[in-house]
Write a protein that binds this DNA or RNA. Sequence first.
RNA 1: GGAGCGUUGGUCAAGGGGUUAAGACACCUCCCUUUCACGGAGGAAUCACGGGUUCGAUUCCCGUACGCUCUACCA
Length: 506
Amino acid sequence: MDKKIRTRFAPSPTGGLHLGGVRTVLFNYLFTKQNNGEFILRIEDTDQTRFVEGAEEYINETLAWCGLQPDESPVKGGPYAPYRQSERKEIYRKYAEELVEKGIAYYAFDTPEELDTKRKEIPNFKYDLSTRNSLNNSLTLSDDEVKELLDKNTPHVIRVKMPEENETVSFVDLIRGEVHFNTSESDDKVLLKADGMPTYHLAVVVDDYLMKITQAFRGEEWLPSAPVHVYLWKHLFGIENMPQWAHLPLILKPDGNGKLSKRDGERLGFPVFAMNWTDPRTNESTQGFRERGFLPEAFVNMLAVLGWNDGTEQEIYSMDELLEKFSVEKIHKGGAKFSYDKALWFNHEWIKKLSAEKLLPYIKNVFAEKNIVVKDDAVLLKVIDLVKERCTLLPDFVEQSSFFFQSPDTLDIASVLPKWNEHKNNFFIELIRSYELATAFDAETLEHSFKEMAAASQLKPGELMLPFRIMLVGGKFGPHVFDIAAVLGKEETVKRIKRGLSILEN
RNA sequence: GGAGCGUUGGUCAAGGGGUUAAGACACCUCCCUUUCACGGAGGAAUCACGGGUUCGAUUCCCGUACGCUCUACCA
């Protein structure tokens, strides 16, 4: 039992990594690192027809962005390389044939077309104990016939022969407890395809064994085929060497029911992929959480509590806290509907939580995209602290603070004009004079002199603050006006008041 | 159709044989703020249904309903 903990994430490179995939990685990673184990990335690219260029790189980049780096991977290498199943092709045939010799598997020569017509003719057709004796395989053919077909390189597959007697396979799932299946319910899954590649069913078992995997996390959709894997383990490597299974609950659509899909994101207007993804075949691109303006901390946090809760009221977790508090036993059994509103809330919380220094590179990036030039990082740091609590997504910083770095294009004078008069106009002329002479230009003294002058002019400060804000900011938003003026500095503040006045005059 | 898994407010969820059934998101009202936010207060659940077991069940057991997943030479 003091075996080194080893887990794996085994995606197939067919497109962008979605929420569910990243969460599987997260839970895997958390569990592994809590136990000083090793986390492996294994690429399951056994289906050449579904292989998509760039998908593997995308997975690597996503893991890096989330801070979930594997200890062994195709890129990083490791003692059990290669980590791409297509490069391990030669390994699998041996095991499939071993199974044939043991009578646990058999050769099948039925063509896909033949099986297709069977499926059309017979409702609920399954290649299983009820049909295999009337099909074209080494169970029905004589040894000589089989040998001849094999010698002639006739295309064939190897299928498991699920037991005929009512054998119950049960195993303990880390999340669901004991799960039972009757083996006769499973069909005779293909293990080795005609092209010599293994199917998932053979490949997971073989590779999990060869790579000494101790715990296997995967989505709940795999539960029905688990008995096949357990059966294979039993005859290939022994049940006692089988990893512990953990079938994670699904992430569901926010509306209705069913697995969350890329389509739902498009339909409802939120990302489902971690990062931008462009399908090289269709050129169709999908926005990711990263490009939408999510912080990796928030993304990871949001995923962690989708289907897991530590029993306390805590909702905001850093990676370190997750590493400390995560537990597999507290993962839920039922699926959870994804809520984009909640995801936004997490991002907002993380923007508030992170220091201006940490936020700085993200904000500069977002500004650069809008061609906003920031000359002085120290100013930007101050600005970030001033506006961060009103930003939910990173690009919100542009809206909320671009006026610090460039004068607003237009002023919302409609909000001022109806109540604008000569009296107020004079006040601002006075204010310009006063501010020009000011020796200190901090928010507090600015506010103080502003209010004193207002009192002297028999005006309520409140009536003057909105026009002042519009002149500086352009609209009805942003931090306290005097904080803004202080950051802007004397010259710029005065300049903007003058400009505002000239616009209001017309 | 079959098998497996699941079911606490609109959503995420805590809890667990006896409770006023936590908390968060969203929504609404109010307070704070003469901007927008933040923040604060308040507002919603006969714990899917029906049977048991029990002095007592939302909590344990069995059914039913509903939902989901799988049922490919895809993963």
